[in-house]
Design a protein around this nucleic acid. Sequence first.
DNA 1: CGGAATCCTGTAAGATACTG
DNA 2: CAGTATCTTACAGGATTCCG
Lengths: 133, 133
Amino acid sequence: MATTTAAQRREQARIDYDAFLAACPTNHLLGRLSDKWVGLVVAALSPGPMRYSDIGRKIAGVSPKMLTQTLRTLERDGIVSRTVTPSVPVRVDYALTPLGRSLAGLLTAVKQWAETHFDEVQEAREQYDAENA
Amino acid sequence: MATTTAAQRREQARIDYDAFLAACPTNHLLGRLSDKWVGLVVAALSPGPMRYSDIGRKIAGVSPKMLTQTLRTLERDGIVSRTVTPSVPVRVDYALTPLGRSLAGLLTAVKQWAETHFDEVQEAREQYDAENA
DNA sequence: CGGAATCCTGTAAGATACTG
DNA sequence: CAGTATCTTACAGGATTCCG
């Protein structure tokens, strides 16, 4: 009998499941939204277009690497647009696309849910922590 | 003049910002939602209560460690309830709380957004990849 | 100014084995 | 059955430095 019993079967299942998850739009979107900086960048860009370093200043604490990385993936997904103005010092503006504004609306919905139920979560936590002294 | 110019200033800003983010309900919720397994567990529990190993079997590819960890944090946040029945082999049931069902509703909203705009994202990506051969 | 390339490190996921 | 304890990796995130 093969020794493939517990571990290998689960590993295979995980591979299949990862593929399934990668193909799942919802899961993918959640991964995107949950990214530490994505929410902040979208929020920063909501009022209007901004330059690279303005975003960096507004977000305060982001390294250039992460800012670029975040903006790149958002640009690739059609969430933000990138406009280069080849003046003497280069000028690059970022703005939300229509799709990006739609995403901002979704974030607003999440925000409202969070604000509505935040105290319930807090209460549940305090109770849980009290019970598990 | 002090040598604290670029790096240290940003580090300080990051500390402040981390505190700000930790206190932000929206950001915190996003972090929770984005957790790889949370969405799956909530989805698995949506139809009704389930036992520990049933969830593990349904999710397929989750290690006992991650399953327990996920369930614990969800329980602490008041998203799921944990019921122990001290029979001969112990039996533990997990179920969504009202708050958990509310969260499931939010996930549904996210899902709908994802399904609605997924093709736009796909298109944007293909175009982006084509331009950056 | 707006990035790209490189290296380094902390965290956290996962495998594995064991317990009440 | 329902976990816990431990170990090991992988990779995201950040500092730093240099280029167009």
